[in-house]
Write a protein that binds this DNA or RNA. Structure first.
Lengths: 163, 163
DNA sequence: CAGATAATGTTATATTATAACATAACATAG
DNA sequence: CTATGTTATGTTATAATATAACATTATCTG
């Protein structure tokens, strides 16, 4: 069994989120610069808001913040930015929650598995080779060709079990 | 590797859907009778409509049909029936599509993995031991206790690849 | 600069789902 | 069999999520 790859871990007690967030933004800037993509102020701000915590964020919560900051934000404002960010792999949508989380491996092609703690709300992202592989092979044996995987795992994280 | 368990297969060319549907209804009736649950005409009708095909069905499409059949159906009519059917394990919700499919193993406790063909729309349901097991063990090694799994696999089914 | 393209603004509306309260159907104890 | 509680359904309204369509602005490119 190959080692599981944790893309976004559950936070350690000493997690410095401002550092974490800053690194996300720098990476995104860099990624876009390299490819001639435009991480406009709006898109950058939405990315920041998604990454405000390690919990899933709702589109309309982002909208509310934008509206408070500046007149004229409407649903398309948010959804377009989210579309861009998803296309570049900076954020993921959690289908089972209609909510968005930042991606821990921006720009790196990967399949994701999300662990979602329903106590504290925190999301961890895995890119586990074995899981993708196993599902692929099972599908394959049924003659099914996989193009997209949605794997969302709800439960209770370690810290919340301890508490 | 244990054998994959296919709960709802992709249909064979000679699939007799009326028989399939009838069997689903009989099973549900029986299941409810045994437990003193009420498969009311409304719930039964919604179950029928979900199982009208092997493709995911949208709540508002069901609503439309109900409204055509009988005055007075409203969103809660449908959502309540769907809730009941989901609780009894007669239907599943596909989170990534906001749509509903009939369950191939009604009343039997299981985790599901859905294979969804984006060409023909047909959904197959698996209850694969290995997948659940692997995900459980990976989560476990991160100290995460799984309570609910959402696994939805999009791609192209065998027949559609052939065609 | 002109024209093209991309991004954002703006208004409206579609789609999905639930809240809240009223009524009806049904079960069962007295 | 009837009062009472419970479950199911009816009804109205609204919340929550998302997109369509077209106008305007910014940016890029020749």
């Amino acid at each position: 069994m190959k080692e599981k790859q944790v893309v976004t871990p559950f936070r350690s007690v000493d997690h410095q989120h401002s550092t974490c967030l800053n690194s996300v933004l720098v990476t995104a800037e860099h990624y876009c610069q390299q490819r001639g993509l435009k991480l406009t102020p709006l898109r950058r701000r939405v990315l920041e808001l998604v990454w405000k915590t390690h919990e899933p964020v709702k589109a309309y919560d982002i909208l509310q913040t934008l509206q408070a900051e500046k007149k004229g934000a409407a649903p398309p404002t948010v959804y377009r930015a989210l579309d861009f960010l998803q296309q570049q792999g900076f954020v993921h949508k959690l289908e089972s929650m209609n909510a968005y989380v930042g991606c821990g491996a921006p720009g790196q092609h990967h399949t994701s598995q999300f662990l979602i703690c329903h106590i504290c709300g925190v999301v961890a992202e895995l890119d586990d080779y074995d899981i993708g592989e196993l599902i692929g092979s099972k599908a394959d044996s049924l003659g099914f060709k996989v193009s997209q995987l949605t794997i969302e795992i709800k439960g209770v994280c370690g810290s919340c079990q301890a508490a």
